[in-house]
């Protein structure tokens, strides 16, 4: 199973700012190894985020996204103590879900 995400969710005025660091190799499928064989694509495909169970973000990731990607987003509403849950699914079907409390 992949390493946990690091998530920070902070209330700034009436907007919750969320920052996420995901641990993933994010292989593009366009590189060759030293023997000249194509390294197969292997990257995060979909990212979703919920706030108190309600969807606040869905993102499609492709091969152009870097290794160990950092993603920032914000949404209106949210209160200190609320829960933000972030999940991703990669091209092999692996999943990872982590959460943070808004501070």
């Amino acid at each position: 199973m992949a390493d946990p995400m690091r998530i920070r969710a902070q209330l700034k005025g009436d907007v919750t700012e969320v920052r996420v660091l995901m641990a993933h190799v994010m292989e593009t499928g366009q590189r060759k190894d030293s023997a000249g064989n194509v390294v197969p694509a292997f990257h995060i495909q979909e990212v979703t985020a919920t706030w108190n169970g309600k969807s606040v973000l869905t993102a499609q990731f492709g091969p152009a996204v870097s290794q160990n990607p950092v993603m920032n987003f914000s949404f209106k509403g949210g209160a200190k103590g609320d829960k933000v849950v972030v999940s991703w699914t990669d091209t092999k079907g692996d999943k990872r879900t982590d959460e943070a409390v808004i501070s």
Partner: peptide, 8 residues
Amino acid sequence: SCHGAFGE
């Protein structure tokens, strides 16, 4: 601001 939220 210079080193990133996660030092990344």
